[in-house]
Amino acid sequence: MADAPAAAALGHAGIDAAIGGGLARGRLHELFAAQPEDAGAAAGFATMLALLALPPGAPLLWLRQDEAERGAGRLHPPGLAEIGLDPARLVLVVLPDPVALLRAAAEVVRCPQVGVAVIEPWRRPRALDLTASRRLAIAAEASGVTALMLRADAEPGPSAAQTRWSVTAAASTALEADAPGQPTFDLELLRRRGGPAGGRWRLEWDRERVRFREPALPRAVPAVAAGGSLPGAAPRYAR
């Protein structure tokens, strides 16, 4: 299992070529939100990668801290369903502190029946150093569990991750009546083990085909003058 981890193709030719066919399963990957405000986009990207890397029937274990549940918002299972992941496959583990989180993460990643583990430390814990990350990477290689380290509010530091990504929210392709469209990101490959890094892409999530795609070219949207009347229409309240 450890010799040739199957790659989970992202569906976007440019990225798949840049990372050798897709996201390597059974490895540790790091996802950074470019800014703390991009936490939602980074969590969404983590969910999508998890969905791509999940073997059929295997569960997704998501490890968070109390602070994240309080400060960054609770993980909302209906939101996972909207991305395409069945919430029944989710096991959420909420940890009191970063040390407990890393300890639990080591156990989770070691268990071969886990499909994907999303590990979400709150901010920049001191316990998460090169040693901790190497431990996770080795465990992931031995068990075949894909580990996604999600950092919503942190700077990249030394780590043993296979790939490292920076996620920024991007304006979506508007739907009718100028409604926000499908999840869209600006993605940057910051680092790749054993290969060249670099590369920026704009991706849109295609839930129905479970893959990423390039966003359609923005069609001409009539600019809405500030203060002007809006298409989309405010509700009329009958009384």
Partner: peptide
Amino acid sequence: PAPWGSPVPGEPPLRPLHLFD
């Protein structure tokens, strides 16, 4: 495991991933 219902095809996500409570 209980059925969650599947989202409407073609629609963008209508429920958020993070919910403040």
